[in-house]
Design a protein around this nucleic acid. Structure first.
Lengths: 246, 246
DNA sequence: TAGATTGTTAATCGATTAACAATC
DNA sequence: TAGATTGTTAATCGATTAACAATC
């Protein structure tokens, strides 16, 4: 009981601060939690995806039990995650599906896409330009490449601009996000150009460890972490099932 | 001290079990830890990447302090992660770079690539076929697509086969890994064909929540989790820096 | 009503970070 | 040698899971 004292005090502090927040910000009935767990944020798109399926099936409410089963999550975890959106469920009934969808989209900022530039129109960059991320909160409004022969080409509706224009373009159009799809050797210098232009976040598809100001958010998206998990597992105990000869 | 008792007992158990493991498996001087933390496995490729740079710079040893600084990690965390590989460092000197590289590659299974099939040769699938993952533990040895007009085409050196051949191909060639790059609606059924063929792991680039036997490892690689983190942060407090007018 | 399901607090679990003796 | 750096244990932190009263 004694080692828990600190933790309990923390909980009490949190409650008090939350109450204060209500006083300060009378607009929202429920104060947003001060800090949102990143794992929860990462899971929210999974719920969103399923909720859209439920709508297509004509469901109007859904229980956390069902969501949890479909995702192989713990039901309590689902309840905690959904609570972040402020939507309340009804015992015995579940959560209103349409309301949840809207609340998650709002929570993630997917209702108001931010503009982004993409640098590096190789095969991955081309694939990214082909996606429409506008329902996922991002609009790619400019594409750049260092290769002179690529500049001027139109890929998925965007004309490729020279790297030399990058910083000015970001600055001029107040672009908050950069997508890095260049070769690893070029990553650091292109990232610096992005930051010089004023981006606040970088989606980094390269394997480079970027050295940037701490207030720039870098989200790693290179494949090596996934591959490490998969290959390590396969190399140690996850052998292929013996093929069933029919 | 009393709430910690359980935890301490656990540590002791671990030690005893580890000792038992040594007795059972006399080959390795240091027994591999029973369970390897996934976050550590995900970080190992980052070290590997930096270590290769250090080699290129002519370094023969590297301290965890330096690695930690370059990656903005805690030095203790780096020591813990590197300890997984079994490589020992020398106080005041650091870790031998070449040895670490080899040990990490071994640990991840990147010295002996596993075979994989890719299904869905759209823009992302094409990009993935263009990568050479053989230094990252994976060889894509077959590509499949449902569209009859794609079948027979050669993309990055692989002839696209019809989905109908998928299960047999996996079974016949003992392929342990499948890469899912199909539209979300097709994901579940293609995944089931992969499992029917005998894959033990699936690299899932779709947003679908797959319902598969629990002993099949599914590694999620769709973009929505990353996007959620980025857009949520930008929508709440990470505004673009005001452009500095020169 | 009875009981499934929510919202929330407490307990557990696991990962990260701090502390420090050993040592090169 | 002196002190930077390792290896490892202990402490902290944060996320997940269990428990359970409230309630529809």
């Amino acid at each position: 009981m004694n080692t828990n004292r600190k933790k309990n005090l923390d909980s009490n502090d949190a409650k008090e601060i939350a109450v204060t927040a209500v006083t300060q910000d009378a607009y929202s009935a429920k104060p947003a939690p001060r800090v949102v767990p990143t794992p929860s944020v990462r899971r929210l798109p999974l719920y969103l995806r399923l909720l859209r399926d439920y709508v297509a099936q004509g469901r109007e409410t859904i229980s956390c039990t069902r969501l949890a089963a479909d995702l192989r999550f713990d039901p309590t975890q689902v309840r905690k995650d959904l609570a972040l959106t402020g939507v309340v469920g009804r015992p015995k009934v579940g959560y209103p599906v349409a309301e949840l969808i809207a609340a998650i989209e709002d929570f993630l900022g997917w209702r108001n896409p931010v503009n982004a530039v993409l640098v590096g129109v190789g095969s991955l960059g081309t694939a990214l330009l082909g996606y429409n991320f506008s329902l996922h909160g991002v609009n790619i409004v400019g594409a750049f490449d260092a290769a002179p022969e690529k500049v001027g080409q139109v890929v998925h509706g965007r004309e490729i601009m020279p790297i030399g224009y990058l910083t000015h373009f970001i600055q001029h159009r107040h672009i908050p996000m950069g997508i890095l799809a260049v070769p690893a050797q070029a990553a650091q210098s292109v990232a610096e150009m992005m930051v010089a232009g004023g981006v606040r976040a970088i989606w980094n598809f390269t394997s480079a460890a970027l050295q940037l100001p701490l207030d720039v958010l870098v989200e790693r998206a290179d494949f090596s972490a996934s591959l490490a998990v998969l290959t390590r597992a396969l190399a140690h105990g996850l052998a292929p099932t013996p093929p069933k000869i029919p």
